[in-house]
């Protein structure tokens, strides 16, 4: 076995282990951290495929931003995990059916018949000067520029919608307007009153 194959199996083992732990550990924070590990190892697997841009972006976006916010929320919530487990037996048949359907669908698409090495050519090794970033940028901003821009606009709309849902004016919201704070003058805060000095013993 060559070095690259050993690496592949190492990362694949860690990935499967981490993904299994995400749904089996009791503590939601541990589950989120295992998901981080799963993202990280899949990034390593993508690096083996010479897709360095996608691998680094996976770490940057999912590990560096999405999972941080996820952890943030999971840590703030006081989830009591025992009621969540009560319906396990009741939902088990449905879960198994769904899992089998997903497995069958994936097998139909990426099974040996359509995705085996006889059907799809083994990816060729690229020369040393090959830049994955440049290739992706070239395709993304020429051929697929409109789908790309439309996707980004849809995401922007989603962000604005989410903010608009939470940013409504409520009476209990406390808010400070920095421009008002900056433009305050001494006369607005303190009034100097001229008065006679008090006498000690009149």
């Amino acid at each position: 076995m060559d070095y690259e194959r050993i690496l592949f199996f190492l990362f694949a083992t860690i990935l499967v282990f981490a993904a299994a732990r995400v749904i089996t550990v009791r503590n939601p924070v541990h589950a989120a951290l295992h998901l981080v590990l799963a993202f990280f190892t899949s990034a390593a697997l993508w690096l083996l495929l010479e897709a360095e841009f996608l691998a680094i972006t996976l770490v940057l976006v999912y590990v560096g931003a999405v999972m941080v916010l996820f952890l943030f929320v999971v840590m703030m919530l006081d989830i009591n995990s025992s009621p969540l487990r009560e319906g396990f037996v009741k939902y088990l048949p449905l879960g198994v059916v769904v899992a089998l359907i997903i497995f069958a669908e994936m097998f139909a698409v990426v099974g040996k018949k359509h995705f085996g090495s006889e059907v799809v050519a083994i990816p060729a090794r690229h020369a040393e000067g090959y830049s994955n970033v440049r290739e992706l940028g070239g395709v993304l901003y020429t051929e697929y520029v409109y789908p790309f821009e439309i996707a980004s606009v849809i995401l922007l709309v989603a962000i604005i919608a989410a903010i608009a849902l939470t940013m409504r004016k409520r009476p209990e919201t406390k808010y400070q307007d920095p421009s008002q704070q900056v433009s305050v003058k001494p006369a607005d805060r303190v009034r100097i009153v001229r008065m006679k000095a008090e006498e000690k013993n009149p």
């Binding site: 360095e52 841009f53 680094i56 972006t57 940057l60 590990v63 560096g64 830049s131 994955n132 970033v133």
Partner: peptide
């Protein structure tokens, strides 16, 4: 090639 991206990540 992508050292800036690597550092950001």
């Amino acid at each position: 090639d992508a050292s800036l991206l690597y550092i950001l990540a």
